[in-house]
């Protein structure tokens, strides 16, 4: 089982495609919001003098208003039809295929091993737990053995397999390092093939930047009201600090 886990780790590494390269325009579009955010976050005690701040703020607002930062292609596309279908965009497809591939690598050895154990060890009792348990654990510990009156302390082969399967994460971590694919197997059990793609930034591209920019414009205007230059009255602060005033 450990060997299968190790093997799975390396197959995952082979399958895992590198993140897709983005064009300059796409990066520019994604990062344009950061400019405004940086400016806004510093505005309450801004290091830059009023004239510079005003110029920057005005420039950004104008740029957002004329959507100067949008990618050329997305401005020509229909802006009103809402976010495009993720399945039609080939770049988003990549992320999803990646999730599917990983799922396959997860599931195939899983099924083979399960079938193997089921075939050879059906009905075997492998170990006896050193402590008594209540009847509720019967279905968990004695899967594959349909006996009513056997003590719950006896564990069937299939259940033992499952217990090991979830308990091996620590071992994988020791063998393969903290961030390995095999240890994530139990987490992957719960996930759907598309869940991985949802969290990836590939889906971030689906955001409608035009709308985001509009909202950011309002925020910028709001931040202008908060603006105070850190150099304002600094001489008084310094003199007071050195108790000259």
């Amino acid at each position: 089982m450990i060997l299968v886990g190790v093997l799975r780790h390396y197959v995952m590494l082979l399958l895992g495609s590198s993140p897709k390269k983005q064009s300059r325009a796409a990066i520019r579009e994604q990062r344009a919001l950061v400019r405004a955010q940086v400016l806004r976050h510093t505005s309450a005690f801004s290091p830059i003098p009023p004239l510079f701040y005003q110029a920057l703020s005005d420039h950004l607002q104008a740029a957002f208003a004329t959507s100067a930062y949008l990618q050329p292609k997305s401005t020509s596309a229909d802006a009103s039809s809402g976010p495009p279908n993720p399945l039609t965009d080939p770049s988003a497809m990549d992320g999803m295929m990646d999730g599917m591939k990983k799922q396959m690598v997860m599931m195939v050895p899983q099924m083979v091993m399960m079938g193997w154990i089921n075939f050879f060890f059906q009905g075997f009792v492998l170990i006896k737990l050193p402590f008594p348990l209540t009847l509720g654990f019967k279905s968990m510990l004695q899967r594959g053995i349909e006996t009513q009156d056997m003590d719950v302390r006896w564990v069937s082969s299939l259940s033992w397999y499952f217990l090991n399967f979830f308990g091996l994460n620590g071992l994988y971590r020791v063998i393969l390092g903290a961030d390995n694919e095999a240890a994530n197997s139990s987490r992957d059990m719960m996930a759907t093939p598309f869940a991985g793609a949802q969290s990836q930034p590939a889906m971030g591209q689906m955001q409608d930047f035009g709308k985001l920019f509009k909202a950011e414009r309002d925020n910028l205007e709001f931040a202008e009201g908060q603006y105070i230059w850190s150099g304002k009255d600094v001489e008084i602060r310094v003199l007071q600090k050195w108790s000259k005033l």
Partner: peptide, 17 residues
Amino acid sequence: PLALKFYLRVVEMLDEP
């Protein structure tokens, strides 16, 4: 005047009485 303000900011940040 601008230079003075910036210099004072540096002093305010770095020097403690």
